[in-house]
C-alpha cells in the first residue's frame, strides 16, 4: 500500500507520541475516507479517550457515551482538521470538552480559578504531615483505598481535575495539557500544583489513619 503504517497492528504504535511522518500519512488516509485508517485511529486512541472520560466523569455509562461521541465527532470533522495539532491531542480536546460540558450540566463551579496557593490563613497549605508513602501496596491499592481515590478526584473542581487527569494520569506533557485545554503553561502548572496538593491532602487523611492503625496493631 506504499505506506509505513501498519494498520493491522495498531498496538505496535506508541499512541499519542506516534511519529509525525506516520501521522501525516494517517491523516491523508483519514481525509480520503479510508475506513481501515479510521479503525486504526479508533484502536490506537480509544483506550486513552475512554480513560480520560472515565476519570473526568467518574461514571462508566457516561464515559462510554463520551467515547462514542468523540469518535463520531472526529469522523465528522476530520475534513476540517488542519494537522496543526497531533491527532491524539485533538481527540483528547474533543473528549475533554464533551466530558466537561456534562460536568457543568451536573454542578455549579465551587471554587474560584487560579487563586494563589495559600491565603493569609494558609488554608491550602498541607496539613496532614504523617508519612504514609511506605505503606504496603495491598493497603495502598485496596478496594477501599481506590474508592477513596475516586472520591478524592470527584471532589476536585473540574478545572483542577481535567489538568490532573491529562497531565498525571494520561502522562501528557505540560505543553500538551495546555494545548488540549486551551490554557497557558503557567496556568497548567498552577492548577496541577493545587490538584496534586488537594489529592495528597485527602489521601493523607485516609492513609495516615491506616498508618496509625498499623502502628497500634
Amino acid at each position: 500500500m506504499g505506506t509505513r503504517h501498519n494498520l493491522s497492528n495498531p498496538t505496535a504504535s506508541k499512541g499519542i507520541t506516534d511519529n509525525v511522518e506516520d501521522e501525516a500519512v494517517l491523516l491523508s488516509r483519514l481525509q480520503a475516507g479510508d475506513r481501515a485508517a479510521f479503525a486504526y485511529l479508533v484502536e490506537l486512541h480509544s483506550p486513552h479517550v475512554y480513560r480520560v472520560a472515565l476519570k473526568l466523569l467518574g461514571d462508566e455509562q457516561e464515559a462510554e457515551e463520551v467515547l462514542q461521541e468523540t469518535f463520531l465527532r472526529a469522523f465528522e470533522k476530520i475534513g476540517q482538521f488542519e494537522g496543526r495539532a497531533r491527532l491524539g491531542t485533538w481527540l483528547y480536546r474533543i473528549a475533554t470538552n464533551l466530558a466537561l460540558m456534562r460536568l457543568r450540566k451536573r454542578q455549579l463551579p465551587t471554587v474560584p480559578l487560579d487563586e494563589p496557593l495559600s491565603g493569609e490563613d494558609g488554608e491550602e497549605m498541607p496539613r496532614e504531615l504523617l508519612d504514609w508513602s511506605q505503606l504496603p501496596e495491598e493497603e495502598l491499592l485496596s478496594a477501599e483505598a481506590r474508592a477513596e481515590m475516586d472520591a478524592a478526584i470527584a471532589a476536585l473542581p473540574e478545572t483542577l481535575r481535567s489538568v490532573f487527569v491529562l497531565r498525571d494520569i494520561e502522562g501528557l506533557s505540560t505543553q500538551e495539557t495546555a494545548d488540549v485545554l486551551g490554557l497557558s503553561v503557567p496556568a497548567v502548572k498552577s492548577r496541577l500544583l493545587r490538584a496534586r496538593l488537594a489529592l495528597r491532602e485527602r489521601l493523607s487523611e485516609y492513609f495516615a489513619e491506616r498508618v496509625r492503625q498499623v502502628d497500634h496493631a
Binding site: 498541607p126 504531615l129 504523617l130 508519612d131 504514609w132 508513602s133 495502598l140 491499592l141 483505598a145 481506590r146 481515590m149 478526584i153 490532573f164 498525571d168 494520569i169 502522562g171 496534586r196 496538593l197 489529592l199 495528597r200 489521601l203 493523607s204 492513609f207
Partner: peptide, 16 residues
Amino acid sequence: VIVDTTRKTITLYRAY
C-alpha cells in the same frame, strides 16, 4: 513528607 506523599499520590493514580 509532602514531597514523598505527593509523589506517591501521583504514582497511585497512575497505577490505578
